[in-house]
Amino acid sequence: MANKNSSVKGRTRSTGIAYWIMVLPGYIWLFMFSIVPMVGIVMAFQDYNPSKGWFGSKWVGMKWFEYLLVIPDAKRALVNTLIIAVSKVVLNIVIPLVFALLLNEVKNMKFKKAVQTIVYLPHFISWVILANIITNMLGANGILNLIMKTVGHEPVLLMTMPQYFRQLLIGTDVWKEFGYNAVIYLAALTGISPNLYEAAAIDGASKWQSVWHITIPGLIPTIVLLTTLAMGNVLNAGFDQVFNMYNQLVMSTGDILDTYVYRVGITNMQFSLATAAGLFKSVVSFVLVVTSYVLANKFADYNIF
């Protein structure tokens, strides 16, 4: 590694600038929309009043955080967020992986490309539209209940049943995203040298053995990378999805931190409480990203940065 670097030192310097220029827009955006607004965190420690501003509002220390800990709604939102987000993170890694492995074995290229394109499409439908489609499909006069009626079953109103709402959120999200996520695995699969498979075949390895000993190890860096990046989202249960799909009846299992912050902060104008909740979420996410980075480095020997 060190040798390699020094041997191309001259080139690195000049091309390095080009790369910096490439990432510059991203950093400007990051600075404008993430670093600058961080000043607003002070509101979490104030009794914020828009007319008094950050300098005039009263300081209240940890009051809002303490209050958050005693509000059942906030606790409920945290639990829901964890369940929904962790399930999504795990399933959004596992299912695309399995799908990519299966698709990789398909030899008919036309069929393979067709399937890949079709499962990829839902990724581009925004949740505003998709949520309405799902709500209508599962509604009293939706396709689900038309089928139920024809088979003589009582109508089932999934959107009113808290016990199924989380599964519904997770299922629809995985359905929407797995085709897109599988593309990354498919790309990694093409990066595995065919020589390895040929060698394994000559040594008499079965299909299953070559998947287990060649394909999976070849994919490990990608899996670790995606997992680590996903950890930052472990408290992101998907605001736009939940917000467009939930209703008061499924609040007990569907309300997540983001929707809670939205209702408290935007609907009810409790800016300080909402900021406190948002800050709490960010701190937990930050800890998780750092932890997973360290773990990836230690156990999988993989450096993301």
């Binding site: 990432v23 990051l30 929309f33 993430s34 828009p50 912050v261 948002g278 996410s285």
Partner: peptide
Amino acid sequence: LASAMALSLAACAGTGSAPAAPA
């Protein structure tokens, strides 16, 4: 990846930034 990280961080912080506006 670094820039992707930067972008996703920016996205993460989205909720935090909204209430900052009344300044």
